[in-house]
Design a protein around this nucleic acid. Structure first.
Lengths: 259, 259
DNA sequence: ATACAACTTGAATTTAAATTCAATCATGGT
DNA sequence: ACCATGATTGAATTTAAATTCAAGTTGTAT
């Protein structure tokens, strides 16, 4: 209504170019906006988040521009700053919630129903689903710490929780062994990493050598569970779990039974 | 001497900001400069490359500015364009040569001297050395495909070569088994990934849980070799290789010997 | 109705750092 | 000595895209 002062111009706006998070914390960016006060506000905020998820999945963090998100959500770019303090803030929220969703899903799966193999298989399937359904987001998870150094800690914390749970599971199932807690944890880290790495190469990098072998997600989960089982328990899983992988049964050191 | 025309200004210079390698190949950048013609030229080019290696190791690709490289090398920024077509070109050359150096080192290690365990251990040590000595570069290797999509293919090719060699090694040592080539290759990928991932978490992320356990590089190589050996050969490595990890000997499925 | 707050927009503003350019310097061959 | 060619420099130029601003819109409680 009332025409206020015309545009000022000496106000110092903030940086523009992606401020390579280097030594000095150059990009303080405006403070985090308060939560929406109205239903419409909440809807819009969610719409922006969902749009960003789709864009992240499609082209990744680096290539994603605020205008991409805005277009996808059907709103004006500057509206984004009403709900988030910037691109990194928005992405951080999305990826954090992704990590958090696993923790919940993971804990919800029942402490340890079924035999050891099924326990491993179940854990693997959670990861396989994530990688096969949203490879783009998984890629972001890996790359986002280039933008926000603190993020890798969050990632690590989740990963650690997961490994620790697995380690405890191993302990429960092998009560008699003399292996220390520490070594058990290392094994969990190593095997958890094996799964992560394999799925990344299969679903994110789409390594043709792997793609041509594994068409069904369940196959991968199964394959990795067998390897895992062999490493920990030093024997093949019960025959009923070997369906399709009977070949493994004979993979052991040639004819060196003596000793 | 002669003052030529004053600076023109209508010449269209190239983009400035990191051109998020998106859809249109916006950043064609000037053509690749010819090789240096003189000894001094070669020295300078090498100096720039070595400087860039140090900066990459220290702060990573994203945060590295051309001025950082120039300062480290003690030359003017614009000189960089005499020898490289830009930041990405320079980095690409560095990382490619790093990958290539492994291939050579790897092939040079003799086809397969020693027993199976030593063969695995030797392969692991190559990786441990790389990760423990230049974690920053290893990190760049992982992140650089965000800048140059084609790079991940190069990485994959090297990784595939490595896995294939391992798979063949497994085949030679287990001639009697009925496992297909394909499955053998998958195992090599999985276990290779396990090593990569573990070393990344230990040396690059410096995950405290891992750091406090492994102080000596040889320990990690040994630990991972044992896991590997167990997975493939379904037995512990010969006792002389278990030094320090005797606990593993008893890690197997409780008391289920019957069957 | 009307006012007030929250929401939304269009357009202006800003900046780091990459890239280019013309000029100067160094050097080796004649 | 001189000149041609490559090496080096200093300074100017250029952007994409993030961020901000102030003004318009919408909704809702009084």
């Amino acid at each position: 209504m009332k025409t206020m002062t015309t545009k000022k111009k000496q106000v110092s706006a903030r940086p523009a170019v992606a401020p390579v998070g280097r030594k000095e914390r150059r990009n303080a960016v405006s403070k985090k906006p308060a939560a929406p006060q109205t239903q419409r506000g909440n809807q819009t905020r969610d719409r922006l988040k969902e749009a960003a998820v789709r864009v992240l999945e499609r082209i990744g963090y680096r290539a994603m521009r605020l205008s991409d998100i805005a277009a996808e959500a059907g709103v004006n770019v500057s509206l984004l700053y009403h709900y988030f303090s910037g691109k990194a803030d928005l992405t951080h929220e999305i990826l954090s919630e992704l990590l958090e969703s696993w923790r919940i899903q993971d804990a919800g799966g029942g402490p340890s129903s079924g035999d050891a193999f099924e326990s491993i298989l179940r854990a693997n399937k959670v990861m396989v689903t994530a990688y096969s359904r949203t490879p783009g987001l998984m890629r972001c998870l890996l790359h986002f710490d280039e933008e926000e150094a603190e993020f890798s800690e969050l990632y690590r914390r989740v990963s650690a929780d997961w490994s620790i749970r697995i380690a405890k599971d191993i302990a429960r199932r092998c009560p008699g062994v003399s292996l220390g807690d520490e070594q058990r944890l290392m094994i969990a880290y190593a095997l958890g990493g094996m799964v992560d790495n394999f799925l990344f190469e299969l679903y994110v990098d789409r390594n043709p050598n792997l793609v041509k072998v594994f068409s069904a997600p369940d196959d991968v989960a199964h394959f990795l569970a067998i390897l895992w089982y062999r490493t920990v328990y030093l024997t093949n899983p019960p025959a009923e779990h070997l369906r399709g992988y009977e070949g493994f049964a004979s993979l052991r050191l040639g004819e060196v039974p003596a000793a």
